[in-house]
Design a protein around this nucleic acid. Structure first.
Lengths: 222, 222
DNA sequence: ATAATATTTTAGATTTGTCTAAAAATATTT
DNA sequence: AAATATTTTTAGACAAATCTAAAATATTAT
């Protein structure tokens, strides 16, 4: 309850948290790319975070968050996603325009604030991008969801999450009118380029690329 | 639309704005006291703000905000007071516990956010302390209010603002059960120590000090 | 296994905002 | 108006977070 961390530190912790979801060893360069900074700056910060016992780090060896580090990361993720929910549900932001603002809001320290916000929003379990919101103890809710590319042909499903928040992806999804909750089914998978033909309920079928299918997560219906 | 300022700069601008409401010339030491820092640090920042044309400053002469500086200050005040309103009206914070959190929230940059928040809250004109909220153009709403010390004996009035947000004052007000909207009247003024006897509608009369009366603002009833 | 390449770290600078101690300017007192 | 006190500014240092350029380590390719 005592400690708190600078915005720079929090951004590093969050970036490492996200990277270690897919990598078993996070590297200096990966963090540098993620945070749009230089490897030398990352090394400096790693030493600081190691000293604060937030990180298991030995030089040249890669690293992961300690359990303390994970706890901090989950608190930041919780704040980020609750603010995104607030922006979309209460302030009528588009779900594709909340990321930057939430990046700022997530650094507001008060835990009283975030817990009251959580209650005000009705303790939502998933943010507008379909990502799970950690609870007050850092526990993530689970939801049965699979990658769109793994959905069987002619099975209906509902979009439940997107794998990235990049401007480019969100622009494409907007254009295709795909969002969280969109119901669709796979009509055909093409072996040639791994593209798939999908059909949104009530619309004409169209093709999407393998890359796009891989960033979409769905919950099978029924 | 282009510029933005660091948190430190914004805090200086806001402090100077508040000080120049009562002083015609703001001094280095006043700002140092207000921001709990040292005069030397203030001088450094004054030079920077002068260079950015936010301040009319000549060394040893005192200073005031330029019109550009005033615009920035009003934008910060707007954010602060809208967030306070949000915290009290939507998140059920007590009106005496929102100041610190709002001090953090006021530095979130997005103007889109603050304008949408304003709309969500129903474009409130006064914050929970009774202070006026500047509109999108920095214009302050006016309300006929006078200092409690200037209220005539036996005239009823409603508390509309408090002159400070200090912990000490808010603690006292809470204990006396005085808040924005409290209806009261002056029973007697004592020349000896300038204390006054007031009576809250429906309660027994009691005495308050000159200092307290001077920090309370009221709107006469009918 | 050694050379070439890529990654990571170190060394030293820079910027922002702060500080202390001392000097300069202003204000007050006698 | 001189002496004293106060306020303000300067000078120099420091911590946080960043950078560039060079050195150290690790990886890969021949």
């Amino acid at each position: 309850m005592a400690n708190h961390y600078s915005i720079a530190e929090e951004n590093y912790i969050k970036a490492i948290y996200h990277l270690q979801q897919t990598d078993d060893n996070v590297t200096t360069n990966e963090v540098a790319t993620e945070l749009q900074t230089k490897a030398a700056s990352v090394t400096d910060m790693l030493k600081k975070l190691k000293q604060k016992k937030i990180l298991n780090y030995e030089k040249y060896q890669g690293f992961r968050l300690s359990s303390e580090g994970k706890k901090i990361a989950l608190a930041i993720v919780r704040k980020h996603r609750l603010w995104e929910y607030f922006l979309v549900e209460k302030l009528q932001f588009g779900w594709d325009e909340v990321h930057e603002v939430a990046e700022e809001l997530e650094h507001i320290a008060s835990t009283k604030l975030i817990n009251k916000l959580d209650a005000f929003l009705g303790n939502p379990k998933f943010d507008p991008h379909g990502d799970p919101i950690p609870d007050v103890n850092g526990k993530l809710p689970s939801r049965p969801q699979i990658n769109l590319i793994d959905l069987a042909e002619n099975k209906q499903a509902e979009v439940s999450a997107v794998g990235s928040q990049s401007k480019e992806l969100l622009e494409l999804l907007k254009h295709k009118k795909i969002g969280i909750g969109t119901q669709l089914e796979i009509k055909k998978k093409f072996a040639f380029d791994n593209s798939i033909e999908i059909k949104i309920i009530g619309q004409a079928a169209f093709n999407i690329s393998q890359q796009l299918a891989q960033t979409l997560f769905v919950k099978p219906l029924k």
